[in-house]
């Protein structure tokens, strides 16, 4: 019961923060709200006994990545004029309508499970040991694929940002 109450608190905070991210005019507010959203999701992970995931969420997303985002935003230092005024366009209205439809459908779908009994977990679920085991056995291939993906991204970042010296080097 107490878990359910905490779940709804964190879930509501995640949703509200996400709404602030997309609706705030000032990108700094958006970034700050995104940190809040990521932290709320991390709390939900804790409630679901996915402790490693929660830890990584805080360290990597709320920590490292958001610091970079804030850094860039502060470097750009956009003024109020550059941000432009809030406009209502056909596209935005359609977008809001579609998102509303999707949310309604999902709400209807999930209310069925609102009071479903909790599923019991295998012992050791969510620990570093178990995640590591599954990562190197069942999901070995995706794990290696991600490393190839990161390599490609690193090469790409280096190619695009280095300064020209002579014949294209």
């Amino acid at each position: 019961m107490i878990q359910a109450i905490f779940f709804y608190i964190f879930a509501a905070s995640a949703v509200v923060m996400a709404l602030v991210v997309v609706s705030a005019r000032n990108p700094i507010y958006s970034a700050a709200a995104l940190i809040g959203c990521l932290l709320s999701v991390a709390c939900i992970f804790v409630l679901q006994s996915a402790h490693l995931l929660a830890l990584l969420q805080v360290l990597v997303y709320a920590g490292a990545i958001m610091v970079l985002v804030l850094f860039v935003l502060m470097l750009l230092n956009l003024s109020r004029d550059e941000l432009g005024r809030r406009r209502i366009t056909v596209r935005r209205v359609t977008g809001v309508y579609l998102v509303g439809a999707l949310v309604t459908l999902m709400t209807i779908r999930f209310t069925k499970h609102l009071w479903a009994p909790a599923v019991s977990l295998e012992p050791g679920f969510g620990t570093i040991e178990e995640v590591g085991k599954i990562l190197y056995t069942k999901y070995l291939l995706p794990f290696e694929m991600v490393s190839l993906l990161l390599l490609a991204a690193i090469i790409g970042a280096v190619v695009l940002t280095r300064k020209e010296k002579g014949d294209g080097r």
Binding site: Y139, P142, M145, G156, V159, L160
Partner: peptide, 21 residues
Amino acid sequence: LMTVYLGIEIMSIPVYVLVAM
């Protein structure tokens, strides 16, 4: 679907860079 998604990303990210090269 996991391999589908990772495959798409491994294909796309190098192409984004190649386009901007």
